[in-house]
Design a protein around this nucleic acid. Structure first.
Lengths: 344, 344
DNA sequence: TTGTAGGCGTTATCAC
DNA sequence: GTGATAACGCCTACAA
């Protein structure tokens, strides 16, 4: 178009300044909305910038800028729950005027690499969603850069954590089932390494409080967990009348396998999931679920990250976000003498 | 630790150079593995860098570096299929020595913003996964920066596309069902804006080729699509003997609603999904599914992005990645006189 | 209200 | 094999 400027190159501040007949500094002031320019020149320069298709170079900005370091986020793209967290982190960070840099954790791009890339970008803090890093790796990272772990409880020096109140959630779920008359309440546990210690102990504690005998049944792989637990239950003498599953996917698998076996939900067995995901709210599922609050989790994490950026050297910090029980139709009153379901 | 260097600051190349007793330039050469340093100094400098915890500043690198522009990726974190794509993009990009910059598309961070942030980072090319941008927005973006759209067919000037062979996949699915004796083969269509034109037309074409009457049933929202289509079918006089659904989630909903209504899969109705996701392979589902090849899709997209970075001004390009039919037990031979399922 | 000088941390191009 | 020096594009002071 303009023979003066070589076509291929991205326009720079200098191009805008020249074209508008002002100095570079003034363009800078105007582009980032700082005070120190008249309305008239402001409008003019912005018009020129738009006409030239000028977009500030984020890399140069980040390099020079002092405050407003970026918040790095390591997440798992195969975890739908992380989507809601990311969305909320974007919003919180933008409000505090911190750029967000994402790094995915996948089979070929492990969490150490993801975090390393965030460090390389000179993020002011790193939020890792559902981190699976070892404690010592987390601690080593935290010595370099503030680290906030979301949705996993870890005791690591200098590492902040933001978690849901799993114990409270499990307590509410068990209490809900007990109030419906259930006494044989099982817990389907994940078979993953470590499982969910907080969820399990929350269940055990709640059962103990009510004087009920716990019944923990181990599930299988992440994706098959609920189905396998269901098969384990079906192979037994008698079924429990209620089952709490380690997440919604597992609850769905439990529901599906039981249903296909002719067991009626909730007449024969009540089911509770965790997460209150889209799966739980499906019209034909209607799973009662322990809801995590992704917005509150993300806000707490982003706020903490911003705090750490502003003032390093704070004490270790843990936020526990309340959960709530979303009651749907997968739980119902215990039916003492429910007739056996017909075997198709 | 070292009183000479102020503790809080990240070590820079200069720190490493001073500590190792060499020049900045030499450190640069060594850190990026360029020729021009003896093995001895190389080892020494690397040791010093490691000891100081030196990590190159990716922002400064990107700013100064000429080639190896980054590949920007706009993705949807709530789409599990994108996880596999991202993983493969990371690998391809690393092989070609291009950094990857991610930007999520979420309710609060729309695709335009995501792409704009990628442009601001001066990516050399942008890959958008399942883009929903209007044609003219895509074209405007493509005038600034090479754009590769993955998993959505668009006819936009200057925009490259990489898509799965939906028509071929649907053809294979319909042929598979026809070979099992099915003639009443329905297609459950997404109710989303636009739906999946290629999948629908692939179905229609395949039915036409076989001289069969098409039967398109509209689904509901993204998440409820399959379930609603199933209810529509159940409300009719007679069921088709086979249904192809617009994706696996829909197929799962179809299967669940039909199963709960006492319709046996595959005895009464065969079901085919699309994507071959984890859902499809669940032990109790075993959905026959049209498999998309995420690795091939991602590789093609990354390769094209790298090509565009190396030499802009290429012609528009479209890659069609083959699909394959994964046959499981949700499809079976047509049973002409199957007895009605018992109504529980 | 505007312009000038200096620097962020790196890479690239030179001479030595 | 090594060491100055000039960019990259922008921001932050400070001077006019």
């Amino acid at each position: 178009m303009d023979p003066e400027t070589d076509a291929g190159r991205n326009p720079t501040m200098l191009d805008v300044a020249r074209e508008a007949g002002v100095s570079r500094a003034l363009v800078s002031i105007i582009m980032r909305g700082a005070p120190g320019a008249s309305e008239r020149t402001r409008a003019h320069v912005k018009e020129v910038a738009a006409r030239l298709g000028y977009v500030p170079d984020a890399r140069a900005q980040a390099l020079r800028r002092q405050g407003n370091a970026a918040i790095g986020v390591a997440f798992q793209p195969d975890q739908p729950f992380h989507a809601a967290l990311i969305d909320a982190i974007y919003e919180s960070a933008r409000r505090a005027d911190h750029p967000v840099i994402l790094s995915a954790v996948t089979p070929g791009h492990d969490e150490e690499r993801a975090v390393a890339s965030l460090v390389g970008q000179r993020c002011g803090a790193v939020i890792t969603l559902g981190s699976r890093l070892d404690r010592d790796v987390l601690e080593a990272t935290a010595r370099r850069i503030p680290v906030v772990v979301v949705a996993r409880t870890v005791e690591a020096v200098g590492v902040d954590t933001v978690v849901s109140d799993d114990a409270g959630g499990l307590g509410a779920a068990v209490a809900h089932l007990a109030s419906l008359g259930h006494t044989r309440i099982a817990f389907a546990q994940s078979a993953e390494s470590g499982g969910n210690p907080e969820r399990l102990s929350g269940y055990l504690g709640a059962m103990d409080d009510l004087g009920l005998a716990p019944d923990v049944v181990a599930g299988g792989s992440r994706i098959e967990g609920g189905a396998e637990a269901a098969r384990t239950l079906l192979a037994r003498e008698g079924l429990p009348t209620a089952v709490v599953c380690f997440n919604d996917a597992a609850a769905a698998g439990m529901q599906d396998v039981l249903t296909r076996a002719g067991v009626r939900v909730p007449v024969d067995v009540s089911i509770v999931g965790i997460d209150d995901s889209e799966t739980a709210s499906l019209s034909y599922r209607q799973l009662t679920s322990i809801r995590q609050d992704p917005v509150a989790l993300a806000r707490a994490a982003a706020a903490r990250a911003a705090q750490r950026i502003a003032s390093p050297g704070l004490d270790r910090f843990t936020a526990v976000i309340p959960t709530s029980l979303v009651v749907r139709t997968s739980t119902g009153p215990r039916v003492p003498d429910a007739p056996e379901a017909p075997q198709p």
